[in-house]
Structures are given as C-alpha cells and as structure tokens.
Design a protein around this nucleic acid. Sequence first.
DNA 1: TGAATATATGAACACACAATCATATGAAGG
DNA 2: CCTTCATATGATTGTGTGTTCATATATTCA
Lengths: 115, 115
Amino acid sequence: MQCDLIIIHEEAVEEVRQAMPEADQIERMAGLLKAFSDPTRLKILEALRQRELCVCDLAVIIEASQSSVSHQLAGLKAQQLVKFRKEGKVVYYSLDDDHVADILDRALEHIRHAE
Amino acid sequence: MQCDLIIIHEEAVEEVRQAMPEADQIERMAGLLKAFSDPTRLKILEALRQRELCVCDLAVIIEASQSSVSHQLAGLKAQQLVKFRKEGKVVYYSLDDDHVADILDRALEHIRHAE
DNA sequence: TGAATATATGAACACACAATCATATGAAGG
DNA sequence: CCTTCATATGATTGTGTGTTCATATATTCA
C-alpha cells in the first residue's frame, strides 16, 4: 500500500472533499439511521406508522417483551423519532416526524426493487 | 406485568397487526438500513454521491485505511448499494441505486430539523 | 518471469449493543 | 395506605461488528 501518499486522482479527491458534510453531521446521521438498523425498532416504527399505540400493545404486536420494547422506545425517543403522551398509567407513543415514514418507504422500495 | 395476556386495546392490536410488513421484509429492511448506521459507510456513500471513486481515493477522502474501506465496500456491495467497474488495477465504485441518495437526504433533513 | 501496485480477504481483538432478569417508579382504585 | 398494574431503568451477558494486521489476488510493466 502506498496510495496514502500518492493520491491517484488529485482533483477528484479535492472536489469531493469540499462537498462532504461536516464530520459532526455524519455522526448524527449515523446515530439517527442506526435507529432503523434493528428489526425490533423497525417493527415498532412500522407499527406506530399505523397509529398511536401504548407500550403493552406494541409488545404484543411485535412479539417482544415489555422491557425490550421500553428500552428501544427510549432510544427512539432520544433520536426524536417518537413522542409520547401519558394517560394515567398508560403511555401512548406515536411517530414524531414525517421523515421517518419517508425513510421507511425508501427502504421498502429498495428491498422490493432488489426483487 | 400482565398485559401479555390482557391486551389493552384489542382492536388496535388486530388492526395494526394486519398492516405490518412480513417478518422477512423487516429483516431485509433492517439489513439494508444497517448499512447506513456507521460513520465510515456513511462517508463512503456521501463521497460516492458526488462521483465515481476508486478505493484509494475513497480512503484518502474519508481518512480511513484502505483495508477498512475495502471491507465496508464489500458490505455495501452485498446490500446492492454500490456497484463497481475495474480498469486495470484500479476499481471504481459508484452508487447503485437512487434510493440511497433519497435516504441520505431524508436523514439530513431530520438532523437539521432537530436544529 | 519478476517486481510493483491496487484491492481483497482472513484472523483476531476490542467494543457496542440488544435481550433478559430483577427491581424501581408512579398512577389508579379499593 | 396498600395493592395492582403499566412502564421505566439498572445490571449482566452473549452476540455482532468495525478496525487492524498480515497476507492473498490480480494486473501492469520492465
């Protein structure tokens, strides 16, 4: 390996470098998209896409433990992907952002496009 | 915990259950979106978004080792997110799907929307 | 054929993370 | 108050994964 020093296409490198997003933004994008990278979280998001749901219903629908769902919801909340409202003991979660549904749509398109 | 048995909102559960994507599709979506969940891979995708690039240039641009970039490219290729063409010793990679750019756009929007 | 170079790949290691279990919090009802 | 119930949270653990290092592959050129 020696191309660390001898850059093969210098203008290409320079050009692309300047158009790259800030490192900070990349990190935050990765953090956000990581929220979509797990089946349990994806199921939660797909379910909430239909309608507002409480933790217990979510657990039943996606067939996961209450604890697991609760933990994952905490993560999704941290990424501002879901919001909630309390009604007595019950906590209702819903999607917090339209981009969520958009991203899910694109992902599904890609999946289906690859037959 | 007892709501495994006593479903709180029975019709909600039934309704959402039927609208849920197949488990298989969820798995594949998660696999796809996992490709976006790492800063190194995100940088690669953002760079390739500008233009076709060889492995060596990519490594320089995103400041990662050649080996690391090569490994990650293999993963992206497996998800059919990038394609490549060979020209002598040099391998040029480029994005393989328009959905990729779309997903990146949505993610960036979300990030910026959260100030 | 042999040296140089661009990329790929395998093994190993350190670290992140999802699930579980146990327990805490907090609200409603008796 | 005390119990019940819905949800949250902390600790633990096993698994997955990104990086590195070393080496393999493959192509060009002398």
